[in-house]
């Protein structure tokens, strides 16, 4: 499938890119990063124009984010009655809203490019938890700009060695993900120990 998509970038250029970034922001599994790499390489080889590529990719991504946010809002509103009826659910909702207030902007920004697999779900959450549209959009555009710039830039540097760069990038992403999980689990372990040390050699109850 990705070969076919790469062919579309070659044939349709920026339009294909806009469509793909749009779909990827709605959690549809398209290899958007790979295609942006390709677009960057095509800019370097003179097959595509940089400004078109950037505007198309950015436009598609921002549009996709907006749709996700809107969907989250609609779903949030419709579920609001049901959510607030139970005190436990209402507490969860309140906490979600609070987290969104505090770290929401940063979460939106980082999930555009660093943890992009979470992006579409953060869109839904942001809309559902009632994150302000202006903040969401600002953080979204900023993050998407980093994403587009980063991958297009790497693609341009990769030039004619896209396959090799794509492999390296895939491993780098995997490294980042597993490093994050390792750090998170390590931190959880640390807290677990600090809270109540379990006597490892305690004798069992008779």
């Amino acid at each position: 499938m990705s070969d076919w998509l790469l062919a579309q970038v070659g044939e349709w250029g920026a339009w294909a890119l806009a469509l793909v970034t749009f779909l990827s922001c709605l959690a549809i599994p398209v290899p958007s990063s790979m295609m942006m790499l390709a677009a960057g390489a095509f800019v370097a080889s003179g097959d595509l124009v940089l400004i078109e590529v950037v505007l198309a990719a950015l436009g598609g991504a921002v549009a996709g984010d907006q749709v996700g946010y809107a969907l989250g809002r609609v779903a949030g509103r419709r579920a609001e009655g049901w959510l607030l009826r139970s005190p436990t659910r209402a507490t969860v909702v309140e906490r979600a809203k609070l987290s969104m207030q505090r770290r929401g902007t940063l979460a939106v920004f980082l999930t555009r490019w660093l943890f992009s697999v979470l992006g579409p779900y953060v869109n839904l959450l942001a809309g559902g938890a009632g994150m302000g549209w202006a903040r969401f959009t600002a953080a979204g555009i900023a993050g998407e700009a980093v994403w587009v710039g980063l991958y297009t830039g790497i693609g341009r540097i990769a030039g004619g060695q896209m396959e090799q760069i794509a492999a390296a990038l895939g491993n780098a992403t995997g490294l980042l993900a597993s490093l994050t999980v390792t750090a998170a689990l390590g931190w959880a372990l640390w807290r677990h120990r600090a809270r109540a040390p379990i006597p490892e050699s305690a004798p069992r109850q008779p």
């Binding site: 070969d3 076919w4 790469l6 070659g10 390489a41 095509f42 080889s45 030039g159 004619g160």
Partner: peptide, 12 residues
């Protein structure tokens, strides 16, 4: 590969 434009091949 088929999806490559000529410019890309030239560069690679």
């Amino acid at each position: 590969e088929g999806w490559m434009p000529l410019g890309y091949v030239s560069q690679s």
